[in-house]
Structure formats: structure tokens, C-alpha cells
């Protein structure tokens, strides 16, 4: 499904039993025993390390994503050098910027944005979903209405409008303030359209949990509402939270790449989506320019999804069998 809004939460809506029956050790054992999960976990770990140590890696190779090397580009804008030790992925046509540095920083921005947006989306979804599910009444009605509202708005078009407005009104293109505003707006947009799935999930889960006898028992004991919410209910929401991250992050990576590809993401940073966009016209002459961000994106998203699926299976003994 191609949906950018709701970020694929629907996918595990009906599939997974969201109760954690399995003790933690079993989950780990199931994950480690699963070769696919172990392999995708390693792939994800490599991307994460690349993202974290991007400046160090670039420094070690003596490259930087922003320095143009016009001396390496011919008069027809074609790069004069291929991949080499100095420029492991070669340089970009026209600008001569180092593609390896571009790629490494692409991983950094991609994962940074996705993590921030996913955290924000999950936090919003968790709070609103718990409030709607446990308190019910008008709180529930307002949250459900908000979810409906966000589900009707096409994410791409709204993002396009926001990007256009920012572009025309905030600072000068390329300035620090502009870049900053674009970054914040992007994360907020992704979070704003990502929370609905989490909220639906948590709400449904809390609705079924609140009638459980252990919650009734806590009320009979005289526990306060906040104690019930945070000590009794929250620990039982581990599965939706873990799944929210593991399935939400790849969706957000995809959504962010889509936006940059359309030129409505962060216009000044070397994200993978932006690189794909830049590389597209050069495809016949320089296919490697296009393939390196495309492959990175596909491998990362695939690994994240496989890991998320394995995690879901490990958390849900009913599906595992």
C-alpha cells in the first residue's frame, strides 16, 4: 500500500494480538533464532552506526558533503573521475560534490528525522489513545473526530502547501534559519500525520484492558487513576509501543524520501530522496549516482520492516506457532 498518512499502522491492526504473553527472554530467543531477523538487525545496526558516526567516517575519508569539487567535473558537467579511494562513490555531475559523504549523511538525516518523528508520533498517539480509551465520553469523541479529520487530509498535498509557504516566507533559501525551520516543519508534519494509527491502536487496546479484572482489582484496592494508567496499563502497552517504532520508522523513512523526491522536503540537505531527484536526469550517463541512494533506501526500509515483522512475531506467540 502506498499510503503515506497513518504510516502503515493499519498493517498490524488486525494481524497482531497485542498482548505480551511471552516473557522477555523468549522474545530475545525467538529473535536471535530467526536468521532473517538477525541479518536484518545487523543491517539496521550498520546503518545506525553510519548515521551516528557520519562526521567521523567522512573525516576518515577526507570528504565532506558540502565541498564542491568543480575541478573534477568536465565542461559537459560530467565527472572526470570514477569511484576511487579519495571519492569512494565518485563525485556528482555538475557540482562535483562527494557522493560518499552525501550517502553517509543521507543515512544520518534519514534516520534522525524518522526517529524524531516516530517518537513524537508515538508520544502523541499514546497520550491521546490512552486518554480516549480510559476516560471515554467526550474525550474519546474528540480524539476519534481528530483521527477522522487527519485521515481525510492527503498528506502529500498538505506537505506541499506547507513547503511552499515556508519557502516563500521564512528567511532566505539556504540560510541557517530557513534550514532549521524546514527541518522542524518536516518532523512536525510527519509526526502530525503519523500519530493517528498509534492512537487508534492504543485506544482499542486500552478499551479492552480497562475492563480486565486486574484493572478492576486496582480500583477496588483504591489505586489512583494515574497509578492505574501508568503502573497497570502502560506496562501492558509495550507491544503497541515497540511495534509503533519498528513499523513506524520505516514508513516515515519512506515518507520523508518521497517528500524530498518531490522537492518538498528539506531542500538544502543531501538526503537520499533529494539525491535521487538530482540523479534522475543524469541516469543514462551516470547510473551509479541514482542507484546508490535507491539501493540504500530499499535495503534500509526492507531491513527495518523485516526486523519489525520478526519482532511482532516474537512478541505474539499465537502468530509464531
Amino acid at each position: 500500500m502506498t499510503d503515506a498518512s497513518g504510516f502503515g499502522f493499519a498493517r498490524f491492526d488486525a494481524e497482531a494480538d497485542l498482548e505480551l504473553d511471552a516473557p522477555r527472554q523468549t522474545v530475545w530467543r525467538a529473535l536471535l533464532g530467526n536468521k532473517v531477523a538477525a541479518a536484518s538487525g545487523m543491517v539496521v545496526a550498520m546503518f545506525v552506526l553510519t548515521a551516528i558516526f557520519a562526521p567521523l567516517i567522512c573525516a576518515a575519508f577526507g570528504v565532506s558533503p558540502n565541498d564542491p569539487h568543480t575541478e573534477l567535473v568536465g565542461f559537459d558537467d560530467q565527472p572526470l573521475v570514477g569511484p576511487s579511494l579519495h571519492h569512494p562513490f565518485g563525485v556528482a555531475p555538475a557540482t562535483g560534490k562527494d557522493l560518499f559523504a552525501n550517502w553517509v549523511y543521507g543515512a544520518r538525516y534519514s534516520l534522525l528525522i524518522a526517529t524524531l518523528a516516530a517518537t513524537a508520533a508515538i508520544a502523541i498517539g499514546l497520550v491521546l489513545g490512552m486518554a480516549a480509551g480510559y476516560l471515554g465520553g467526550w474525550v474519546d469523541r474528540i480524539v476519534s473526530w481528530l483521527i477522522d479529520l487527519f485521515l481525510t487530509m492527503p498528506f502529500l498535498l498538505v506537505a506541499a502547501a506547507v513547503a511552499a509557504i515556508l519557502d516563500a516566507t521564512v528567511g532566505r533559501r539556504g540560510s541557517g534559519a530557513f534550514q532549521h525551520a524546514q527541518f522542524v516543519a518536516l518532523v512536525l508534519m510527519l509526526a502530525a500525520f503519523g500519530w493517528t494509527g498509534m492512537a487508534r491502536l492504543v485506544r482499542a487496546q486500552v478499551l479492552s484492558l480497562r475492563e480486565r479484572e486486574f484493572v478492576l482489582a486496582a480500583r477496588v484496592i483504591g489505586c489512583s487513576t494515574s497509578r492505574i494508567l501508568f503502573r497497570e496499563l502502560l506496562p501492558n502497552l509495550t507491544v503497541p509501543i515497540v511495534l509503533g517504532f519498528s513499523l513506524g520508522i520505516p514508513s516515515i523513512v519512506t515518507a520523508e524520501a518521497t517528500l524530498s523526491l518531490l522537492g518538498i522536503g528539506i531542500s538544502t540537505l543531501p538526503t537520499w530522496g533529494a539525491t535521487i531527484r538530482d540523479a534522475e536526469p543524469w541516469w543514462r550517463a551516470d547510473p551509479g549516482y541514482l542507484w546508490q541512494p535507491v539501493l540504500a533506501l530499499i535495503v534500509l526500509v526492507l531491513a527495518l520492516n523485516l526486523l519489525g515483522d520478526a519482532l511482532r512475531d516474537a512478541l505474539d506467540p499465537k502468530i509464531r506457532r
Binding site: G8, R11, L261, L297, N305
Partner: peptide, 17 residues
């Protein structure tokens, strides 16, 4: 899994190319 994991926009670009 492969098909759902690949960003659709990228697929479209590749298909076009």
C-alpha cells in the same frame, strides 16, 4: 514484504527510467 518495503515513489521513478 519486498513490494511493501520499497518506497512507491522510488518504484515509480525506476519504472519511468
Amino acid at each position: 514484504m519486498g513490494a511493501t518495503a520499497v518506497p512507491f515513489a522510488v518504484v515509480v521513478v525506476l519504472a519511468y527510467l
